[in-house]
Design a protein around this nucleic acid. Structure first.
Lengths: 192, 192
DNA sequence: ACATCTCGTTCACTAAAGTTAAGAAAGACG
DNA sequence: CGTCTTTCTTAACTTTAGTGAACGAGATGT
């Protein structure tokens, strides 16, 4: 697990052995069972999550319906907006597979960053990269139909379609579960 | 103009007079005429933009149709994804009002940041904040209908509806211009 | 002043998504 | 093993968005 993390970090900065052991000594890894709710609406938190294995999702409850808006799988990081804005969370975060997560909190990050300014650089690079990715995803979403979005997902994250329940996928695609079923039937029809 | 910029920066870090004059000496301000294309599809650039006055938009050309995905107005910053990924741009950036922009390039930023590490911190805070904002916008988009998105925009950025052409607004809302017209008529009907 | 072009709106029609309801299939649990 | 629940699918119907075409208003250019 440590190696997975260090391989990831090495894409941005290089670490000395001393820095590596400083990270290990923080004891950040957590095993989390499927179904665990990591963050609830209205709750305040300083925690960020990095998925080493498994999958977590973010969802809102609107009119007592769950609306899933994002999935985070292996080597993906989530810092909930409420951590940045220091306000109560607008959404839930839950674990949809047995997972191994790295859980860090912003106070601790600030401390580490002041000791190792390198980390600030890495955080900056990471969030710039994530912002660019998020914008492109958003743009693709805006400029395509539900059917195109599904086909696009099939290309880019085929694993998600296997490991995630359909009704969660549906709201991730911005549609109703029934529409997703129909849309998939339509696609199969076209192929034949 | 300098004051607008320094007020903005002061939300993140505090600057000494020396640092301020270092920034001014970089001579970053540009007056840009309405209609100017700042970035074209396929082009490589290292430029980021900060809008002091006016409005710029990003758009794709898909099937020879313009698809507008974002607007940036006063005190908003745009670093195109292609600057981060160092690849040719996937979209166009154009100026839709006579504007005053701050144009910086990533080489210069790197130089300034190494001289004043404070700036790295600010960039990090800024991109974390923007990422959080982008995620929330995306989530709202996913979880609402075109009509709700329009009403939402009316609440949050009423100025945009005034200053931006309808057909650009339409694709910003992820729909066709005709649908936006119809949708607006529908809303007016409901009110009466 | 005239022709041209762009933009916004409207209309009729088609296609797709929302909604409500019902039933089948798969899982969870005692 | 059967029961209960959740998940997925299908269907009928309603609502809304996409599409193609047409029109008028306003801007642009010569």
């Amino acid at each position: 697990m440590n190696n997975l993390l260090f391989d990831f970090i090495s894409k941005y900065i290089s670490l000395t052995e001393e820095e590596k052991s400083a990270i290990i000594s923080l004891d950040l890894f957590r095993s989390v069972k499927k179904g665990t709710i990591l963050l609830e609406e209205g709750q305040r938190t300083k925690n960020s999550y990095f998925v080493l294995k498994g999958c977590i999702r973010t969802y809102y409850v609107i009119d007592s319906e769950e609306k899933t808006t994002a999935f985070y799988t292996e080597m993906e990081a989530l810092t909930p907006p409420c951590v940045v804005s220091k306000t109560p969370s607008e959404y839930y975060v839950s674990c949809i597979e047995d997972s191994i997560l790295l859980v860090s909190n912003s106070d601790m990050e600030a401390e580490v960053n002041s000791k190792f300014p390198k980390f600030d650089i890495m955080c900056r690079m990471l969030s710039e990269e994530l912002l660019a990715k998020e914008r492109i995803d958003f743009d693709e979403f805006k400029t395509s139909s539900p059917e195109q979005r599904y086909l696009n997902l099939l290309q880019k994250r085929p694993d998600l379609i296997q490991r995630v329940p359909q009704h969660q996928l549906a709201s991730y695609l911005g549609i109703q579960p029934q529409s997703l079923s129909r849309l998939r039937a339509r696609i199969l029809e076209k192929k034949s």
